[in-house]
Nucleic acid binder design. Structure first.
Length: 517
RNA sequence: GGCCCCAUCGUCUAGAGGCCUAGGAUACCGCCCUCUCAAGGCGGAGACGGGGAUUCGAAUUCCCCUGGGGCCA
């Protein structure tokens, strides 16, 4: 076999969501681990829901996540086209070939007739399977249907597969004892689940092309995957039940089927498949909320797979090196936001140490999106954001924390939390602290954390105040909140003018001062 | 309805017959540090869905049930 080739098959019907990004990442990991290639295929067969805008957004989100592809609609490649909407001729030709090889036949049953059959089966409480009544149509019966204006759909003819002599002891079609009888079975050899066996008589002559000429999912996928030389299909388990049908198709064409690996499905807290319904399902929202692609990759890997005991932080290179389908779990993991927040915090802290400028840039963009920073690229602004980031330090685990702990750095006046004001500002004692601080700070030169702290400490001592009594009212006065960075560091960043203004403003919120002693 | 997949703390998982008094992480709670918060340190609570079978011994193997998910649609 040649190099490993995997595929990422998004539908451009919306923004890339976390579940698909997760599966895409595994395809990428697997291909990279084996030094293989990744093919991006756009599954845009539904013209009413697909759009070029979403297609572009998917490229963008995938690249942001760090997933690259070697072939795709935008980069080209030898096995294109890579958009399903441009492959309809290929599907048609493949269907004709199947008919010519005697593995498929035209079916003139209308959807209404099929629906009626199905309803009857339901009413009689038996499993519905297509009757196969168009399989043996005489040429003149076909002509009659055509004359009546009916257009044929194409169905796969399973009858030839039902010949027990086709069974191969180690092959994909085997005779298996089931329920006490020997049954012809399609055996799927799944790289994560082992052998999964489907009785052939559970399957019927399924549709391959609709009467309007459009290809069905299973059929298009087989034609595409073979045409694009895909060697390994890593996809969600929800497709496991489709696999026997696809295997049938491969053999009808005389093609070597690829390897299959069915990954678990990412689910939400309600244990249902992650979808737009869950909110926060679009990968893009994480990007905008200051999540780091490297953190997401690490987190994605840990859902389904632990590279080794006792460690949780792995670089992408390590993940690539250690990736093995044998280790991938089979149960559906719940996408746990809280743990993602923690992991993102780990990566943000590392970034703070290793590349504070990059962090500052990301935070500046975030603030800009939040409407708190008009010009995020201005060098002066950036330098300021960088100082803020350093003062905020390891408090930032996601974008919201920048606002939670530091919005006041970017506001004319802080947004005063009423509870904080009630607790620390509305008292004569608080008013006195504010007055004392204003006076003390007036002379501090240079206005740096160390000097400011020394001044405030000696002031507290001189007036018999504890640091707690001093710090809390000042913090609320300057930031509007009870949580946040160290008081003196934050004062340095704010600078003497803003500190003075805010103290003055806060004074109006405070109670009347006790008579000076 | 038929078929298929899945099942360890709330969550992500380790565990592939004795190493398990079931380990780690996260979240939660407490203490320490401390100007608050965050980070960090220490500690706590918290799981093998149920029932059979195999075995000297089962979270680990087999069967049934239950629950969840999916395909046919």
């Amino acid at each position: 076999m040649g190099p490993v080739r995997t595929r990422i098959p998004p539908s451009p019907t919306g923004y890339l969501h976390v579940g698909n990004a997760w599966a895409a990442f595994f395809n990428w990991l697997f291909a990279r681990h084996h030094g293989g290639q990744v093919v991006l295929r756009i599954e845009d067969t539904d013209p009413t829901r697909s759009s070029p805008e979403y297609e572009r957004a998917i490229y963008e989100d995938l690249r942001w996540l760090g997933i690259e592809w070697d072939e795709g609609p935008d980069v080209g490649g030898p096995y294109g086209p890579y958009r399903q909407s441009e492959r309809t001729g290929l599907y048609r030709a493949a269907a004709d070939e199947l008919v010519a090889r005697g593995f498929a036949y035209p079916c003139y049953c209308t959807p209404e007739e099929i629906e009626a059959e199905r309803a009857r089966a339901q009413a009689e409480r038996r499993a519905y399977r297509y009757s196969g009544r168009c399989r043996q149509l005489e040429p003149r019966e076909r002509r009659a249907y055509e004359a009546a204006g009916r257009r044929a759909a194409i169905r796969l003819d399973l009858s030839s597969f039902r010949d027990p002599s086709r069974a191969q002891p180690g092959g994909w079609l085997q005779l298996r004892a089931q329920d006490g009888t020997e049954r012809l079975c399609v055996v799927v050899r799944d790289l994560v689940r082992g052998e999964v066996v489907f009785a052939l008589d559970e399957l019927d002559d399924f549709l391959v092309v609709r009467s309007d000429g459009t290809a069905l999912y299973n059929f298009a996928n087989v034609v595409d995957d073979h045409g694009m030389r895909i060697t390994h299909i890593l996809r969600a388990v929800e497709h496991l039940s489709n696999t026997p049908r696809q295997l049938l198709l491969y053999h009808a064409f005389g093609w070597e089927p690829p390897e299959f690996a069915h990954l678990p499905v990412l689910v939400g807290p309600d244990r249902r498949k992650l979808s737009k319904r869950h909110g926060d399902a679009a990968l893009r929202e994480y990007r905008e909320a200051l999540y780091l692609p490297e953190a997401l990759r690490n987190f994605f890997a840990l859902m389904a797979w632990y590279p080794e005991d006792g460690r949780e932080i792995f670089s992408t290179e390590e993940l690539v090196a250690r990736f093995d389908l044998k280790d991938v779990g089979r149960a559906s993991p719940v996408f746990d936001r809280q743990k993602l927040v923690w992991m993102n915090g780990e990566y943000l802290r590392r970034l703070l140490r290793e590349d504070p400028d990059r962090l500052a840039g990301l935070v500046a963009d975030y603030l800009h999106r939040q409407g708190l920073l008009p010009d995020p690229k201005g060098p002066e602004r950036l330098a300021y954001v960088r100082r803020v980031v350093e003062v905020l330090g390891e408090r930032i685990k996601e974008g919201a924390d920048v606002l939670r702990y530091g919005d006041f750095f970017f506001l004319e006046l802080p947004h005063y939390d009423p509870k904080a004001v009630d607790a620390y500002l509305r008292s004569p004692e608080a008013a006195r602290v504010l007055d004392l601080a204003a006076a003390t700070l007036e002379g501090v030169q240079p206005f740096r954390a160390g000097e400011v702290e020394a001044a405030v400490r000696s002031m507290a001592q001189a007036h018999g105040l504890s640091m707690r009594q001093v710090v809390h009212p000042l913090r609320v006065a300057l930031t509007g909140k009870t949580v946040g960075p160290g008081l003196f560091e934050l004062m340095e960043v704010l600078g003497p003018d803003r500190v003075r203004d805010r103290l003055r403003h806060a004074r109006t919120l405070a109670g009347a001062a006790e008579p000076a002693v």
